[in-house]
Amino acid sequence: MNTDNQPCPRCPDGTATVATVSPSGNIWTVYMCRVCHFSWRSTEPKRRTESALYPEAFRLTAADMAAAPDVPAVPPLRRNP
């Protein structure tokens, strides 16, 4: 088990911090990326945890993240509720 920060497998510049560790047996760590909010368990198949093997279709670039729309859109504040 590794409790250091990890590079994010999904986004280019993301750093993931430890979200939790296995309650028994030091078996796994769950990491969460501070940039794209991707989370993963250290014992998952490598296609989900390693940058080099992470599926192309699900990678996120900075441009993808910047272009993500608000769903639903935030409505204008009502002046006299």
């Binding site: 999904r10 969460m32 909010h37 991707f38 993963w40 998952e44 198949p45 296609r47 989900r48 699900f58």
Partner: peptide, 11 residues
């Protein structure tokens, strides 16, 4: 908590 599918963003 656990992940369902490969491309899911998390749990």
């Amino acid at each position: 908590l656990f992940r369902l599918n490969d491309g899911d963003g998390g749990f």
